[in-house]
Amino acid sequence: MTPLLQVENIAKFYGARIGCTDVSFDLYPGEVMGIVGESGSGKSTLLNCLAGHLTPDRGAVRFDTRADGLRDTVTMSEPERRMLSRTDWAFVHQHARDGLRMNVSAGGNVGERLMAVNARHYGQIRDKAIDWLGRVEIGEDRIDDRPTAFSGGMQQRLQIARNLVTGPRLVFMDEPTGGLDVSVQARLLDLLRGLVREMNLSAIIVTHDLAVVRLLADRLMVMKDGHVIETGLTDQVLDDPQHAYTQLLVSSVLQV
């Protein structure tokens, strides 16, 4: 079985400082991978390198394209990479405001990716937008409201709908539940888990919230100071941490 994403020795430096270095892993279709670590450990740098927002200084990121199999996205041309990022990839930002057009209605936000791949039938675009708003539990009557009129949790769900509408195969998520209160977080996680299963999505989730990865991720990667210090199955890493830092991380979670 070919991996969907093959990451080989990715490194990104900010001058002399390390962003992330020596990261390698394979991600298979349908698999969800969590990346945890403290602030400044290089999680977001790594995610941005994988999603093509940053150019890594070293290494290769190979994606299993529909047309010609594994291709290195670092060296592919910009039009191809941008095409991937609006069809086969999705990126869910921590702050919904970064991923949404705040002055465009919810329907327009969901429809944008469809129109970007040449959907030119208003009725069909609208039907699809209504369908997707329903799937993320946003009422049909809110379709013409702007995201500014939505609560934080709704904005985040709208961002997810907007990203998944073109049926991507790989979703990058950067702290998808950050800044939301716990009950909203729980519903969002429930929704995400359902969508991931239903659409057989592969996902890479960056978070510092261990509960999120426990729920969503099949595999876990722990990062510190730009290095991967521990990898394994989620339950294995969380229940039997080997590295001193992972042990610290797991024991730092507050118990209610």
Binding site: R101, G107, G108, E112, N118, I125, D144
Partner: peptide, 18 residues
């Protein structure tokens, strides 16, 4: 440069929806 004109239709979409 990359002929990414989907956004232009978003404006027309907004017109029709409003």
């Amino acid at each position: 440069a990359l002929e990414e004109y989907g956004l232009m239709h978003v404006k027309l979409y907004e017109d029709i929806s409003q």
